[in-house]
């Protein structure tokens, strides 16, 4: 069974202890870090002060009926202060450092095999009168420019 006056007394005691604790920490950190108010739950403490929020809280000191208020009802002030999540400006990449427009790198211009001027000659093989064969590959290996004249005897 929960007695409302007991709960009020318990919460008042806990808030009072919290205020004292935070006040002591603020003094330890210097005047500039002291929040303006310690009366409530620690909502005024900026994350940048580095003050540890979780403090030891004597749960059972003010509650005559220890079983009436479970520990799970303690103030969740430890989760109220978010860590610094904003990205500092210094870490942002300035626009001036952005990559310049890409410069096209021309690929090696190798002609493809074809039959017209400008193309790589199609591989071929011819047989000479003596029976020897000549291939286009051999001519290319020997770096021999070649003129082919196709004819008929008639």
């Amino acid at each position: 069974m929960i007695h409302i006056p007991v709960v009020k007394a318990f919460l008042a005691a806990r808030l009072g202890l919290l205020g004292l604790t935070l006040a002591g920490l603020a003094l330890a950190c210097g005047p500039s870090a002291a929040p303006e108010s310690f009366g409530g739950v620690a909502t005024a403490i900026p994350a940048a002060t580095g003050i540890p929020v979780v403090t030891a809280m004597p749960l059972a000191t003010a509650a005559p009926d220890a079983t009436a208020i479970p520990a799970a009802t303690a103030m969740p002030f430890a989760t109220g202060i978010p860590a610094a999540t904003a990205v500092p400006a210094a870490t942002r990449i300035p626009a001036a450092t952005a990559m310049p427009a890409t410069t096209a790198v021309p690929a090696a211009r190798l002609p493809s095999v074809g039959t017209q001027a400008g193309a790589l000659v199609h591989p071929f093989t011819i047989k000479l009168a003596g029976g020897a064969q000549v291939t286009s590959q051999e001519l290319l290996v020997q770096h021999r420019p070649t003129f082919l004249f196709f004819f008929a005897s008639w």
Partner: peptide
Amino acid sequence: SLQDLQVQTQSTKIAFDAQGVII
């Protein structure tokens, strides 16, 4: 070879340089 070079008539002339490029 004749088909590959697309030689269909007599008196066709094909010249290619030392790199094999038809000029």
